[in-house]
Design a binder for these strands. Structure first.
Lengths: 188, 188
DNA sequence: GTCTATATACCGATAGAC
DNA sequence: GTCTATCGGTATATAGAC
């Protein structure tokens, strides 16, 4: 198999395993096994575990940018685009109940490990934060756009942690409805 | 040293290390070193790492019960007691910015590890949930008390994750103020 | 109750044959 | 580009002297 395709498979497998079982708990053998490679061959593609994490974060950043661009084309109004973000907790409900938020849980873990890649992972949060801020600015709240963006991010993280802890689907739906009503008070 | 005192020291050290560096990342050697014991002697007090986690969770449950009882004596009204909970994110701001919420981060980690003690850790959340539910019932919202309790828990978890990710003190204060105003709409 | 020494397993990482 | 074999380190856990 060409090196590029193998590398992409490794990143995809590592992405999934880091999300499902955490970064530290995932071993090279786990990733190699998921791709169908031997541990030894692994180092031809990535020279260290940090390098894989770096590649996974880059892939998530690229995926997120694509998703945000798609939301821009699908939702005509800034409020509609913000609701697209809010509704992720419904769209990805099953995964969130099992594994939490991929961004929040990775950042939390890397902070505890005092891992050098923590800053890189923070860029994922910043990407959403900047995008939400822009939506609130377009909604006519340029002055408090960042504060409102942070509030929406905190909503998603709170719901994700509680959904993961209690597996309560009705709770998620109620919180999304609550958020929708809150957002209406900022529409003009 | 008497076995009981040594055991308590081990639990206190493990509690702190699990919070600061995570359960999996904390080794027996780390805990033994913090207490000033050899690794070998460790097994006289705890026969497995799971047993230490179990003891740590029990200690946290006992500490939490004591804290909730103290809040009952310090705050005269149910709204005041709920605000005591909300203001934890300010009271423990420094630790939360560095390590997140001790309950939320432990539950998140154990879920990813598919650890047998996940249910035990969930009791910490349930303890707060039940207590908050009781406060909302006393406030005159018995019908939606559990939903309101879950909303307050989600608030604290969302703020903790974001505070840990961005280390933004002003953000925490704003979210607490927002919560105080929200709570006022439920006072009668 | 505390210690040293050790068993056993797995981790990340490397070397070298093919 | 993939493999097997292996190194050095660390993890949990145990045995036994004191």
């Amino acid at each position: 198999m060409p090196a590029v395709a193998t590398r992409e498979q490794i990143v995809a497998a590592a992405d999934r395993l880091f999300y499902h079982h955490g970064y530290e708990h995932t071993s090279f053998a786990d990733i190699a096994g998921a791709v169908g490679l031997s541990r030894g061959n692994f180092y031809y593609h990535f020279k260290s575990k940090d390098a894989i994490l770096d590649a996974v974060i880059d892939a998530r950043l690229a995926d997120t940018r694509r998703m945000l661009e798609q939301w821009e084309t699908e939702a005509a109004t800034p409020a509609g685009r913000i609701m697209r973000y809010v509704e992720i907790v419904l769209t990805n409900r099953a995964d969130i109940q099992d594994y939490g938020c991929p961004v929040g849980t990775l950042t939390t873990e890397l902070a505890k490990l005092e891992h050098a890649m923590l800053g890189q992972a923070g860029r994922l949060f910043t990407l959403f934060r900047t995008w939400l801020r822009e939506q609130f600015a377009q909604l006519g709240h340029a002055e408090h756009a960042d504060e409102l963006a942070m509030h929406v991010l905190a909503f998603s993280q709170g719901v994700a942690v509680m959904a993961n802890a209690f597996h309560d689907e009705a709770f998620i739906q109620r919180e999304v409805d609550r958020m929708r009503e809150w957002l209406h008070t900022y529409e003009r």
